[in-house]
Design a protein around this nucleic acid. Structure first.
Length: 560
RNA sequence: GCGCCCGUAGCUCAGUGGAUAGAGCACCGGCCUCCGGAGCCGGGUGCGGAGGGUCGAUUCCUCUCGGGCGUACCA
């Protein structure tokens, strides 16, 4: 249990005891204690924690909230309350708790002891899978994939620190209609490049990267493919191209700091018969009907706008059929929780996907789909349009090349997934105060610099046991300690609400508190006990900044 | 038309139903002969609108206006 959780549950204990005590004395009548909240007030003047239990009990106790709160506080007794400096009733009936600083002074030792593990919570013994990016292997990775990558990977990091066993997965769309069109595009380019006058398919992939792939094929195979019949030629070309594209995708994502545990092939679901299997099962259970020669899944019974085709009249299954088999497979692999990161343009797919899981007998709440709004790319004031078809796009590898991995990842996660993201290339690569990623990194580098100074002066921090943390008692030091203590809880909230942007904000807040401290107080000074305490504070601040940046996939430089 | 997301300060955005709605940028004015000035300190009435439920709504519900996306036997 992290420190904030521990405080909350301690307060809950104190309150519940007081409530039972009051009831026994006949001061208060109630059936059950309502599900009240211990929260951290926005205002510092309202204490470290506040409880709203009195307001929630007013009705059943038939007393004014403030009266109830007063009774509760009066019943608190014993050595437990010695941990509080003050307990007060305020506002509409809040009970505000002011801790003494002692719990904060225990934090540095915990951080030092856990080191890079600080921010990890106790294991939950639950398996969660995060599937993200899953870009079609028919082109380069675009800004949408990039945002999905940053969000998905950061979320996976958060979940791991929240105590889950996490697997990252990439679903490879190596089957279906898109691949067919891709094959046609490859073949057309091949024939054109070998001197044949053929028409390029209307809906084909016209980007320059496809031409490059075909040139690579010609380099390796020459004109030998001309001797094959069309289907053999396409097969060969698509195998070559998929391999090349997947290698590109894997490498680019690695450069982006993302390493997958599983690459899952859609084709494998076709090959193993799992798609047919699930269609048959759903048909038997009457979730599927035939109309106009096609098979339809009854997604409207799960609130979808319309039923969805699962097998076309031409006998080909749709991507939806594969997706059902795929998600069934996920649950069969034993995940307690399955999370998909999708672009908002796929939101129409959510209801039927969850419906399909329900039809299969799985609790749809075990599947969460994190929709992220799309990215608008700017260069200075001008919008850069993205389109695979025209080829006028900035790809993820180019983005990393231009602005660097750190800035790119930070920018993609600093906004809520629900929020449209305007990504300005010019801003992201600017090494100035306008660029937030440097603010956090600079704090880290600055702390490193303090330690370099200390070392140069022959100053060593005393052993932990000999350091008196209670010397850290000014406003900036307390705020900094408090923020550091929040980190594990912040991770839990980010995990629960699928909100990776919270960590970006957290690290900026933490860096801000550090900078403020730094400008108000000197670490290296002639007061040895104080110097030791502050060195310790710097050490734990550095660890926390580094760990938070690590969650974001951003490096923590020693100097800049 | 219908569905989903979003409308919060000049701009870009935070804000697990709580008590006086916050950051960054931009703008103005200040700051250590000293650990990195990529820093710090100060300067701010704005939740698109109208109803409804709640002790209490930026947050939940309904309607409405504005923007994005979706609404294929594509994925």
């Amino acid at each position: 249990m992290n420190a904030i959780e521990a405080n909350k549950s301690f307060i809950k204990e104190v309150i519940d005891e007081a409530l039972y005590c009051a009831r026994q004395k006949g001061l208060l009548s109630f059936q059950d204690i309502p599900d009240y909240v211990i929260e951290v007030p926005r205002e510092k003047g309202h204490g470290d924690f506040a409880a709203n239990v009195a307001m929630l009990m007013a009705r059943q106790a038939r007393l004014a909230p403030k009266t109830i709160a007063g009774i509760i506080v009066a019943e608190m007794a014993g050595d437990k309350i010695s941990r509080f400096e003050k307990i007060e009733v305020a506002g509409a009936g809040f009970i505000n708790f002011f801790f003494t600083n002692n719990w904060l002074y225990d934090i540095p030792a915990q951080v030092i002891q856990m080191g890079e593990k600080y921010g990890y919570n106790d294991s939950l013994n639950l398996k969660v899978q995060v599937e993200f990016v899953s870009a079609n292997p028919t082109g380069n990775l675009h800004m949408g994939n990039a945002r999905g990558g940053a969000i998905g990977d950061t979320l996976a990091n958060i979940l791991a620190r929240a105590g889950y066993e996490v697997e990252r997965e990439f679903y490879v769309n190596d089957a279906g209609n898109q691949i067919e069109i891709f094959a046609q595009s490859l073949e057309a380019r091949y024939l054109q490049l070998t001197g044949h006058d053929v028409i390029f398919p209307d809906n084909g992939y016209a980007g320059p990267d496809v031409i490059q792939t075909v040139k690579n094929i010609i380099r390796d195979k020459g004109k030998s493919l001309l001797e094959l019949d069309s289907s053999a030629r396409r097969k060969l070309m698509i195998d070559y191209a998929l391999k090349e594209k997947l290698a590109y995708i894997e490498k680019t994502l690695l450069d982006f700091g993302i390493k997958y545990d599983v690459w899952f092939s859609e084709q494998s679901l076709h090959d193993s018969g799992k798609i047919e299997e699930v269609i048959q099962w759903l048909t038997e259970k009457d979730f599927i009907y035939e109309q106009d020669g096609a098979l339809w899944f009854k997604s409207t019974i799960y609130g979808d706008e319309k039923d969805e085709v699962i097998k076309r009249a031409n006998g080909f299954t749709t991507y939806f059929a594969a997706d059902i088999a795929y998600h069934k497979d996920k649950f069969e692999r034993g995940f307690d929780w399955v999370i998909n990161v999708w672009g908002a343009d796929h939101h129409g797919h959510v209801a039927r996907m969850k419906g399909a899981m329900q039809a299969l007998g799985y609790d749809p709440d075990r599947l969460d789909i994190l929709l992220m709004q799309l990215v608008r790319l700017y260069r200075g004031g001008n919008i850069v349009r993205m389109s695979k078809r025209t080829g006028t796009t900035v790809s993820l590898d180019e983005l990393i090349e231009e602005v660097g991995k750190d800035a790119a990842r930070f920018f993609f996660v600093m906004r809520s997934p629900d929020s449209h993201l305007d990504f300005d290339l010019q801003l992201a690569k600017q090494q100035s105060q306008e660029n937030p990623v440097y603010y956090a990194q600079y704090a880290h580098a600055r702390i490193c610099s303090i330690f370099r100074q200390a070392e140069a002066a022959g100053v060593n921090m005393a052993p932990l046991k000999e350091i008196d943390c209670s010397l850290l008692n000014n406003e900036e030091e307390i705020s900094l300690l408090r923020k550091i203590a929040d980190f594990p809880e912040e991770i839990m909230i980010a995990a629960r609400t699928l909100a990776p942007h919270r960590i970006a904000r957290y690290v900026l807040d933490l860096a801000g508190l550090f900078h403020s401290f730094y400008n108000h107080h000197r670490v290296l000074n002639s007061d040895l006990p104080l110097q030791n305490a502050r060195l310790l504070l710097m050490a734990v601040t550095r660890i926390t900044i580094r760990n938070a940046l690590d969650v974001l996939g951003v490096t923590a430089p020693q100097q800049m």
